[in-house]
Amino acid sequence: MDIAALVAWVVTALGGFVLLARWISRGGLRQQRTGTTRFPAPLVFGHFLLAAAGLIVWIVYLAADRPALAWTSFCVLVAVALLGFAMFARWVPVHRTAAPDSAAIGDAREETTPAERHLPVPVVAAHGLLGAASLVLVLLAALGVGGS
């Protein structure tokens, strides 16, 4: 269970890196000043940094086999999931709006399109599902299900 949780968490992180890079490359940080993006930078980077910290704690748990570290990872992952749900709730209305015209790419109208509008739906879905699987696997491992 421990290694399954690690694998799920790492694959989730890879999807998260793709989403973060896409958001930044589409102007998410620049849009903070104009309010175009619905993702505040502290929410985005808080999600990222907490997930990375939790993963590090999980790796230390795997090396040290200390139950307290497993529970710490789980608690951090719960906070990460809550931030992820907040971003998902902000992303859904943006995704449901009409796609920007292809002619608008590169002109001033592109700056009015939130950066999160460009996040690929399959990556968002996989990231969320794998994140939920990671949370469940970490909980099961912390409970001692499946041995360590």
Rank of each mutant, 00 (worst) to 15 (best):
S148F: 13
T97G: 14
R109N: 11
L49T: 14
V136K: 00
G146A: 04
S25Y: 07
W91Y: 08
I56D: 12
T34L: 04
H127A: 03
G28F: 01
W71P: 07
A53R: 00
H47K: 01
A132P: 05
A132W: 01
I59A: 14
L83G: 14
A8S: 15
G35E: 05
A104L: 09
C75V: 14
T113K: 00
A63G: 12
P93F: 01
F17T: 14
I105C: 08
P120W: 00
D2L: 15
V145G: 05
I105A: 15
V76S: 11
A133T: 13
L20S: 13
D2I: 14
L14T: 13
L82I: 15
A52C: 10
V60W: 04
Y61V: 10
T97R: 08
I56V: 15
A125P: 03
R30I: 09
L19A: 11
H127T: 08
L50G: 07
R38C: 06
A141D: 15
G54A: 10
S25F: 11
F85M: 14
L69Q: 08
I24C: 12
S148E: 13
V136A: 12
L62W: 02
T34K: 00
L82E: 11
H127W: 03
S102R: 10
T37D: 08
A103P: 05
A52H: 04
A133R: 00
W58C: 09
L119I: 03
P114Q: 02
A64V: 14
A81T: 15
A81Y: 09
P100W: 01
G106S: 07
W91G: 04
G144H: 01
P100N: 04
G46K: 02
R26Y: 12
F74P: 10
A51I: 03
P93K: 00
A99V: 11
G131E: 06
L62H: 05
A86P: 04
A126H: 02
H95E: 14
I59F: 12
L19W: 04
A51V: 06
R33E: 13
F39P: 06
G84Q: 03
T12L: 13
G54T: 01
T36Q: 01
R33G: 15
G46D: 05
S134Q: 03
L50H: 07
F48D: 10
R33L: 15
I59D: 09
A41I: 05
A79Y: 02
F74S: 07
P120F: 02
A125K: 02
L135H: 01
W71Y: 09
L143G: 09
P42D: 06
L143P: 02
G16S: 09
H95I: 05
W58R: 03
A64C: 06
A98C: 06
V138H: 02
